[in-house]
Design a binder for these strands. Structure first.
Lengths: 138, 138
DNA sequence: TCAAGGCTCATACTAAAGTACCAAAATCAG
DNA sequence: CTGATTTTGGTACTTTAGTATGAGCCTTGA
């Protein structure tokens, strides 16, 4: 919101400056009014593009909105979520156990709980559901 | 490319129209030059935003570029690719067999071949690799 | 302090997944 | 037509995955 105010202030100032410049240029007879107007038009055309570009860039950066609330709603714990991430990377239970420094039994327990909470029959289905629920970055 | 030419033609015409209008308005003394310039500036500001908006909309629509060439390069056959898609949906071999109307043995063969071609040890890893290779819509 | 939930681990199974090898149709390009 | 793939399917095994159950340890809120 602050930036919006700033941008509009800058625009107004630019406009005022242009007024003075154009008036001076026109009155002094250096350039014709057509050229003055053309320059202003082109300038503001590109200013519009620039502003829009910046605004859209923010939206694009907001691509991965992981739904933390949904994770809570499903009752998925911190550790279970870590396991879920490793599953989505394509790791086996043994490999996950090694990366998280626990036994394979532990991972099996977590996976089993995850499948119940995500209402999935297999880990592949869990991946799909998790992505649909936006608790995994696509 | 055609649209680009059209858009620029329209812009030039708009500019010319504005010239005449502004000249007339100014010379007839109806409105001051400041207001004329301000209107032009604002108009072109929004034109810039509009043009940019349209250009970016096209890019966004180009999100899912499945790399058909890569599928060929990897030697993945039509049927194998169908199986890959079903795998990514989270289906079991038996379920895939049912949806494709073949036996589970056939699916196992396809999966085994896929794992070799995708250089994966598990189906979950195959999903990941396939998405990285852009042969599956994220 | 005490119950509750989360994390850990184990055992014992059952069920899928995956490998290896083989082989018969079907399809397709030369 | 013929050789090369592709698709299909089977058998026999090994390896992961997943379930069920029980239990000890830790942290935390009431």
């Amino acid at each position: 919101m602050k930036k919006t105010i700033f941008v509009f202030s800058a625009l107004i100032i630019a406009l005022l400056v242009l007024f003075q410049l154009s008036k001076y240029a026109y009155l002094s007879g250096d350039i014709s009014i057509e050229i003055t107007i053309a320059i202003i038009a082109i300038a503001f055309f590109f200013i519009g593009i620039y502003i829009n570009q910046k605004a859209l860039r923010k939206k694009e950066n907001a691509i991965p909105p992981i739904d933390l609330e949904k994770i809570e709603q499903l009752g998925i714990s911190q550790r279970e979520y870590e396991v879920l991430i490793e599953i989505s990377k394509g790791l086996s239970n043994k490999e996950i156990a090694d990366t998280l420094f626990v036994s394979e039994s532990t991972i099996k327990t977590h996976v089993s709980n995850l499948l119940v909470k995500l209402d999935a029959k297999r880990r592949t289905q869990a991946i799909q559901k998790a992505k649909d629920l936006q608790i995994l970055s696509i």
